[in-house]
Design a protein around this nucleic acid. Structure first.
Lengths: 204, 204
DNA sequence: TGAATATAATAAACACTGTTTAGTAAATGC
DNA sequence: GCATTTACTAAACAGTGTTTATTATATTCA
């Protein structure tokens, strides 16, 4: 009865095919232009077939959203080796910002768009988000323990750090930084200077 | 030849009627569900008529976006009388956050959504945004002058403040604060505590 | 092996969306 | 009173996400 297993494998392969196509189209043309029909066209199946493998469009983008978190997670974990928690905090922030600036569409899906969060509501918890946030929490806990940063409630401090880098990246990604009336290059420099200043103010 | 003037007046009245209906529907059902057809239905005209008064849907929402900025501006100007610039800065931040939390749809349109910015690109400058940002700049300039906050570049500091409050509000509005796994009430309290902490760190 | 059943895929439709075009009816100018 | 401009709309166009009924293929079992 290996047929059932083969069928399961084929089902998973088809899901992967859809996700790969959707991801590629999403990164090339953005969310709105990535329609079910365009994905179907790309993989040379009918639009209705996609609904045999995914409940709706949101479910597809929820998977892409999870994959994007894996990517960010990998980049953040590169700094595991940094012993000093405050230095690690700085590295995490810079890497987070760089990720957002270099992958604006992924960042959008992860932290700005409503679409994948609709899916999350049916799940009770935001797994991917919790993982990255958890990493920030442990780093900050170390910072507080070693009195590297000003004493304050752990969660309040975490929200402070995350909101801050998210504010910078999301204003940049959604093109509100245009009020500075500077080139993209200079704007990004200001973003990084601003983060450095923030870190300095956080220090004891 | 007062006919021309009356015609102009009627044209403006029709534009207002459309904007009023669109605003009301937008605040009730959000952007996506506010279709041209639903506005047409509401004002009892055909959908095509709307296109005689507005170029496209974006142009309608650009006007709503401007009105929302007027609203925020009015609330921010309430603090003009506060003599101490640092105290005024705190009041501005709290009012900004409150505005976003109480008017999530307006906030979305003003600082998160892509739609109205397409319109803004054709205008060379972001009038409404510049006005509010300018107010922040002058307040911060006073703070720096009177050495109420840590010395730093004016624009970098402004971006820092704005990004910070925007980060808090936008994560809240787009439901990412769910990682805290707290009630809405407590989440909002954390938001405010976080801002207080931020201000304290900014102080000299 | 052959008939019955289960699975996979799709064409076509449904109910929407923003927007354009062609045509009608009313107001205005002369 | 007639020609012209203006205001409006029905219908169509080209999309969207999603569902349903149908067909073709693969699997099971007698």
């Amino acid at each position: 009865m290996a047929i059932k297993e083969r069928k399961e494998r084929e089902k998973q392969e088809m899901r992967n095919l859809i996700i790969e196509s959707a991801t590629q189209l999403f990164l090339k043309q953005g969310y709105d232009k990535t329609s079910i029909r365009s994905i179907a066209d790309d993989i040379e199946y009918s639009p209705a077939t996609i609904y045999l493998y995914f409940k709706d469009k949101d479910e597809i983008f929820y998977v892409i959203h999870e994959n994007a978190f894996d990517l960010l997670d990998k980049e953040l974990r590169q700094h595991d080796a940094i012993a000093d928690p405050f230095e690690r905090l700085g590295a995490l922030g810079r890497t987070y910002m760089q990720f957002g600036i270099e992958n604006p569409d992924y960042y959008d899906l992860m932290f700005i768009m409503r679409a994948p969060m609709e899916q999350i509501k049916n799940e009770e918890k935001w797994k991917a988000g919790e993982c990255a946030f958890g990493y920030l929490l442990t780093t900050l806990a170390e910072c507080l323990e070693q009195k590297k940063i000003r004493p304050a409630d752990l969660h309040v401090t975490a929200i402070q750090v995350w909101s801050y880098v998210h504010g910078l990246v999301s204003l940049y990604v959604r093109e509100r930084m245009c009020i500075l009336m500077q080139t993209d290059e200079i704007t990004r420099q200001i973003l990084h200077s601003s983060f450095d200043l923030f870190l300095a103010n956080l220090k004891t």
